[in-house]
Design a protein around this nucleic acid. Sequence first.
DNA 1: GAGTGGTCTAGACCACGGT
DNA 2: CCGTGGTCTAGACCACTCC
Lengths: 242, 242
Amino acid sequence: MLKKNNSTPLYNQLVDVLIEHIKTNLDIDEKMLSEREICLKYDVSRTTVRAALNELEEMGYIFKRHGKGTFVSGLWKEMQNLSEAYSFTEQMKQLGKIPHSQVLSLEYIVANQDLAKNVGIQEGEHVYKMKRLRSADGMPMMYETTFIPAYLFPDLTISKLESMPLYELYPQVYNQDIKYADEEFYASVLQAKESEELGLPAGSACLRIRRTTYSQENKIIEYTLSVARGDQFVYKIRHSKK
Amino acid sequence: MLKKNNSTPLYNQLVDVLIEHIKTNLDIDEKMLSEREICLKYDVSRTTVRAALNELEEMGYIFKRHGKGTFVSGLWKEMQNLSEAYSFTEQMKQLGKIPHSQVLSLEYIVANQDLAKNVGIQEGEHVYKMKRLRSADGMPMMYETTFIPAYLFPDLTISKLESMPLYELYPQVYNQDIKYADEEFYASVLQAKESEELGLPAGSACLRIRRTTYSQENKIIEYTLSVARGDQFVYKIRHSKK
DNA sequence: GAGTGGTCTAGACCACGGT
DNA sequence: CCGTGGTCTAGACCACTCC
């Protein structure tokens, strides 16, 4: 069943096998095999089994009860929608829409004190400032202003920006792998100028988003301010108790 | 250093010790002791050390690099602000404001098909419907409509609801421990009637929130629709890559 | 090659839930 | 009492990074 000399770890193989088993054979709240039974069935140690079960628990497939057993959770269906994706391109593709980004401007500027703080550099260093209009199936969806520290991204050009999504450009061209992104957002209404860009009446509901993206080395690689159509963006999050 | 016959697990004790060590002695990006060094220093097995380090990594205190070592992350400062709290009462207290909830109405109703689905019961079963106006330092902040399945919460009364916050009532009075809550929200504008409740002009920005709260047994214990002042609520979330 | 984190084994004892 | 998940040990080998 499991291949011991495979490059993928045993517990990851076990995760895949168990997910398949759950999806095809088990219902919600149904009891699974015990940890020791899984050990015997797949000929692996209990450490390996527990590593796999922990993964499954984090993914929302199962939950455990001390002294009782392990049970199917059936949350994985809902989990699918809960956005792990923070890329506009990916989000739109998931919704079955064709994303498009139009670069409206690209400037090479000097950071003032406030901007320097937000992109993690010293005052006076250089930053690229880019404005983009992002659409899905031809409908304007959001208007973004992005700041990128120049020291990490030399020779940024519009042609590079238009060649691929920003979140592919970072790792593939500039060797900057994304670790995580923090977002703050709040409800607001469109101002006159913004309403023109998005083709909506002034006073329409919108979501204002402030995003800071960090690299594996904990450097800020992007700081973005967005204005998104309120009628098109629904955020989903899960608060877990401990 | 660590107490082997303590009721709290060794790896949890180790977590506390290491957090204290990081906070007092180490800077961001500084290298920590290796796993094997920690084994020797505290006289525990590597399994125990790795359990503790995994906790620390999840909490944002450290990050690991295969072949290089374990390093201080310094994200825990920011993490504090990223909302784990999904209770209005707790949120307001953290901001140093005095929260108040006024129960406007409490009804005992029969669920139609749509409502039944949202609270996880059968059509025709009973549900409590409650409306609340929530304020901070006397300022109306949000207007909530909450649905609670009656079978889990017999004899719900206004006096019970006013005696303590809902998220304390669930576990303490009805023995329903919260597992997690899912929230969906989007930007909108206040309608005429809502603007009266909140004391704001019609057309003001607002956040519309839909929350479903689940118990440890995966039962829905609350379904809430909220309208919150757009100028007072900022959501913060973190998207982690893998 | 030396040191690191990543995976894995084959045991052990404990605490909890139900019979 | 037995079976469950929770914790813990003392090893082992692998893959990665740097010298």
